[in-house]
Computed example of a mutant assay.
Amino acid sequence: MKKLFPVVVVTLLLLLAILPTASAETKNAKKEPATYQIPPSVRNITKENTYPNSTQDLPTLQPSELTKQLIDSSKVKIENPDLIRMLNESSINSTPFALGYRAIVYLGQWPLNYESTETALNWEYQKINTNYYDNRGGNVPYQIHYVQEAQKNIRGGLTAKIENAEDVKKMMLLKAMEKTRLPLAFDTIIGAGTKNDHVYNIPVNRLGYLYAYAPAVNEKGKVTYGEVYLMLKGSKKVIVVKNVTSQGIGAWIPVQDHVSFGFAASERPR
C-alpha cells in the first residue's frame, strides 16, 4: 500500500496540470468565429454585373501614439472610427514642468463601441428578378438562364431610429464584415442586363420560373454611448467617459454582387 502512495500522488498531480490546459482549450474553442458558407444556389456576379459597385472600404483606423494612449486611459472601450479619426487629428503639447495646470475639454456625446450578439444571413432577403418561359407546347426541354430585366437598388438600414445613426452603421458594418468575410454595403445595385451562364432545364409541358434574390446579413447587437471628456492635468492626458448608456440595435446589410437563385417548373401558372 505504501509503495502505491507515491504513484497515486504523481498521477493526481499530472491530472491537475492537464485539466487547466483542457479547460483553456475549451474556452478558446468557444471563441472561434462561426463560418458563413455560401450555398450552391448563390453566385458571385461581380464580373457580370453591368453596374460597377464601388467596394465598401472601411478599414479599421489605426490610432496614433497619442490616440492609443488616450483610448487606453478610458474605462469604456472606444471603437468609433470617427472619434478615433478626430483624436488622430489632435495634437496636445504639454511640459513636465506644468505644475498645477488642469483643463477639461468636452468632446461631445458619442457612440463609443458596438458589441455584436447575433449575425445571421438571409440568402433571399429581397426578390430582384423573375425569368419565365412557357414550354407547355415544346417537344424538348428548354434551357433558361438568368438575365436581370431591370436595374435594382437593394437598400439595407437600421431596424430602429437611433442617435448618431451613421456612426453606428459604420461600426455595425465593420463588425459584420469581420465576422462573415463577405463584401457588405448598406446600398448595392444589380444592373439591368446582368447575366449568369448557369442553365436550368424546363421540362416539356411545363412552365419554368427562375427567381433571383439579393442576400443580406441581419446584424444584431448593442451600442454604447457616453459623454467624452479630455482631461489634462500637468503632463497627464486621459479620456474620461460619463453618463454611459447602452441600447440594443439591429440592421439589414446587403451582400454586394451576389445573387441567390431559385428554380421551379410547374404545370400551371404561378
Rank of each mutant, 00 (worst) to 15 (best):
K170P: 07
Q126G: 03
Q109T: 13
N243Q: 15
Y36N: 12
R206L: 11
S91A: 01
Q143A: 08
K2R: 04
A160I: 00
K31M: 15
L12C: 14
L16A: 14
N44K: 05
A34D: 15
A165D: 11
A160F: 03
K47F: 02
L173H: 08
V259A: 05
A98W: 04
V259T: 02
P52H: 02
Y200E: 08
T55W: 08
A192G: 03
V8F: 15
V10G: 02
G234L: 14
N201L: 06
T35C: 13
E267D: 10
I253S: 02
K68S: 07
K222S: 13
R155D: 02
S74M: 08
T117W: 11
T180D: 15
K170Q: 14
F186Y: 15
N44Q: 04
P40W: 15
N218P: 13
G156M: 09
L70Y: 03
V259E: 05
T180K: 13
P63Y: 07
D187F: 02
P254M: 15
V217R: 15
M171R: 01
N196G: 09
K236F: 09
L15H: 06
A192H: 02
P39A: 07
N113M: 05
Y146F: 12
L58S: 05
E89H: 00
F186R: 03
L4Q: 11
A216P: 08
A264S: 13
K161E: 15
T67W: 10
P269N: 13
K77A: 13
G193D: 07
T117P: 03
L232I: 12
G226H: 13
S41H: 10
Y209H: 12
P81H: 02
E118Y: 04
L232D: 08
I189L: 00
H145K: 09
P269V: 03
L112D: 04
K161A: 13
V9D: 06
W110T: 05
G226V: 12
E32F: 12
S116G: 02
K75Q: 00
V217S: 11
V204R: 13
L232Y: 10
G250V: 03
A98C: 06
K3F: 14
G156S: 11
E166G: 05
V9T: 12
P39W: 15
L70H: 07
Q56V: 10
G226Y: 12
F263P: 07
T194H: 08
G262H: 09
R155P: 07
Q69K: 07
E124N: 11
R85D: 06
G234W: 13
L232W: 13
T21Q: 14
T224N: 11
N205C: 08
Q126W: 11
L12H: 10
N243M: 05
Q62Y: 12
S246V: 10
L107D: 00
I239H: 01
D134P: 04
L182K: 01
A192Q: 07
A192T: 00
P20E: 07
N205R: 00
